[in-house]
Design a protein around this nucleic acid. Sequence first.
DNA 1: GGAGAACCGTAACGTACGGTACGGTTCTCC
DNA 2: GGAGAACCGTACCGTACGTTACGGTTCTCC
Lengths: 225, 225
Amino acid sequence: MTERQQAVLDAVLALMVEGDPLTMTAVARRASCSKETLYKWFGDRDGLLTATVRWQASKVRAGNFDRQQLDARALRESLARFAANWLGVIASPTSIALNRIAISHAGSKESNLGSIVLANGRLAIGERVKPMLEAGREAGILAFDDTETAFRTFIGLVGRDVQIRLLLGDHRAVAPGEIEADAMRATDQFFTLYGTGKSQPAREDEAPSGTGRSRPARKTHQRVL
Amino acid sequence: MTERQQAVLDAVLALMVEGDPLTMTAVARRASCSKETLYKWFGDRDGLLTATVRWQASKVRAGNFDRQQLDARALRESLARFAANWLGVIASPTSIALNRIAISHAGSKESNLGSIVLANGRLAIGERVKPMLEAGREAGILAFDDTETAFRTFIGLVGRDVQIRLLLGDHRAVAPGEIEADAMRATDQFFTLYGTGKSQPAREDEAPSGTGRSRPARKTHQRVL
DNA sequence: GGAGAACCGTAACGTACGGTACGGTTCTCC
DNA sequence: GGAGAACCGTACCGTACGTTACGGTTCTCC
């Protein structure tokens, strides 16, 4: 994968994001290359799309989380940071465009675009978060039987219906400045469900049912990500 | 909208579900009608798709929930039944195919397919569930400030990443027999987050952190939907 | 029973687009 | 400097599909 080829794939991503029709001619013109070169490098249109999806997936490999000192506060912060990061990714125009393409292809006949996005999206995320959850369980901070269930609950609390709404064109699904607040809300709710209660940070209200009432002071972002 | 026209739209749905290419010729052949009739009735291909989406939306109008006696048990059952019903809908081949089409169209230029699905899916669901939640709050069973936030938390707990995974072609996203158990798990978690604790059903374990541990006896479906 | 509308089946048209071919230019290597 | 590879731009080909047109059949209404 040369530099030039990566530039071509970035051109494909740009076209996807702009919503322009994704024809080979448009890609060639946008990337200032010939169609012959496209076919020589990527085989056919499907190969070009597959390479684009892989290329984008390889760019989202950032942000590993250290697990040295594992108290409840550190785990909370790690989870909240992960949640905010992930929300930012799925709300990005690139992710939306890419998922739209993959979903379209999953609809028609056999194309592994969907499984590629799935493997590099959901499953890769799980492989990064689950160790954090299990470390929290071993440290006595979290309590759950099935890691997969706990992980998917976390995913649900963080993402809710944001992704599907964005894919359907609802741009109000996530407010730009609310991502970090949403990440903290989801993390608080997750700890209410799965936390053991040991060494939880002090709360300013004493409601026994967790974080159901959104705390108004949350707007000030006491816990900076 | 005559009977014959509805039959045509059902043919479109059938083609969608089978994943066959959705050409006007294929629709005409499947519905045993002429292409000229298709254009006369629906204008163009987009009009046919729009009519199909509306037709399907009009068929999912089932299942209103009574709110006469509103104790915690009744609310729990209503929410769990709603959750199971909704999970069944979004996991159905028709819903998956329809959402794929709508998402594809939302990607390219202005087409309101996405907003139609959005209006008849997410938003319509909210209008049915939110009154239940608010009734529960007025009865002192639930506690929350923002109805929308509580509703979206419930949606997230129920759906998690099921829909996006199904759209991407992951058929293992939801196990056929697990829908009702999932609905109850989500409802339990929702009550842990937003319940006031008044008149909650007795629990067989005394873990203070809610339903984090999945209870093994749950497999027997004590609470039948 | 006949006129007209509605509709079916099929043929035909035009365009868009995936894929290929080719001349011209630049770069590499000897 | 020259041979060859790599690549750009463009023209070209074949097919798929949206859309229109038309002959033939059935149904409606008087």
